[in-house]
């Protein structure tokens, strides 16, 4: 099937941000991201005390690629899916869970965040975000970008790549 465009805005976006914020508060994780399966960031939240995050684009892309590979592995073994994915280093860790069919939840946490809490609240958040994603897909906003958008974008292409 053709990958649908998952767009969060308005009230749905605000609710997604609330879910991420609450999850950071409950788990003590540093950053929470909702990303689509293509690797684009849909929403992200940072704990107030957290240092500057690594580049979000790179994080999202690698996590989406990793999740896609993990899903392919599951299918090879006759599983529909594998459960959440956790990577843990000496200081930092990642928690990735499916937020429905079209999105992923990513939590980045350090050694002060208990893994049990990260998994528990991560799972709850993923379920809540999955419901929001379903709502968003059921009511896609109509983007009305006209020829002016294309003209302006073309001018920027000339500027960036030369005439």
């Amino acid at each position: 099937m053709v990958e649908p465009s998952l767009v969060l805005y308005g009230a749905l976006y605000e609710r997604a941000m609330e879910v991420l914020e609450e999850t950071l508060r409950e788990t003590g994780a540093r950053y929470g991201l909702l990303i689509d399966r293509k690797g684009f960031v849909l929403a992200h939240k940072e704990a107030l005390w957290a240092p500057k995050p690594p580049p979000l684009d790179s994080l999202a892309t690698l996590v989406a690629g990793n999740a896609a590979a993990t899903q392919a592995l599951a299918k090879l073994l006759g599983e529909v899916r594998f459960q959440e994915l956790v990577h843990q280093g000496e200081r930092m860790g990642l928690y990735v869970d499916e937020a429905g069919e079209h999105a992923l939840l990513l939590l980045v946490f350090d050694e002060n965040a208990p893994l049990g809490k990260v998994k528990l609240y991560g799972k709850r958040a993923a379920e809540a975000l999955a419901r929001l994603a379903e709502e968003a897909l059921a009511n896609p906003p109509k983007l009305s970008l006209d020829t002016q958008y294309r003209e302006e974008a073309k001018a920027l292409l000339d500027e960036l790549f030369g005439n």
Partner: peptide, 15 residues
């Protein structure tokens, strides 16, 4: 199929 992020007012394309 572009990804639109209204909150951050971004349109993203994958090439």
């Amino acid at each position: 199929m572009s990804t639109i992020n209204f909150a951050n007012r971004e349109i993203n394309f994958k090439i």
